[in-house]
Amino acid sequence: MAGSRLEKIGTIFTRATGLIRSKAVQYEDRPVWYDVYKHFPPTLQPKYDRPAPDTPIRNIFYLEDQIRAKFHKQMGRLLPNSNLYDTDARETATKRFLDVYYKHLNEKQMSSDEAFQSAIDILKAEKVLSKPKSKSTDASKPPTDESILSSFQQAKSKSEESVEVDLKNIFKE
């Protein structure tokens, strides 16, 4: 479309309005978006030099962060992975741990160290902390005691079985 290509001056709306006002574009030929923009202007003007308000960034901390940090420090690599495709917001091991911990702390009146240890024990018993099984040790395949050598020999004996192909007449019907 004809128009000023200086994208750093004004907004697309002001530039389009300028074109219409100067009759470079007839009002009937205005862009499809023009009326929509006019009725629903964006909250922030889409200007190249729009100054950024000086908003302070606050830190997000929670009361249970100390206990969470302690848990992570102790567990380290025992914590399971989370699937980034999974949008079900399944509860993480840390979340489960905190639930159990606070339950013990508040309901069973344990000391914080006792509650911490018992929560870890419960999570270990629930196998929350063990890493998820890899696909090769899937439950669908029963574990076999085959060594590499035996499987190699099996494969070799299989390949040595005579395959009955009549090569001479392979293209004949």
């Binding site: 950024a52 308000p53 000086d54 908003t55 960034i57 606050r58 830190n59 997000i60």
Partner: peptide
């Protein structure tokens, strides 16, 4: 910055 809730 203006769209942030904070920094975790």
């Amino acid at each position: 910055k203006q769209f942030l809730f904070g920094s975790r």
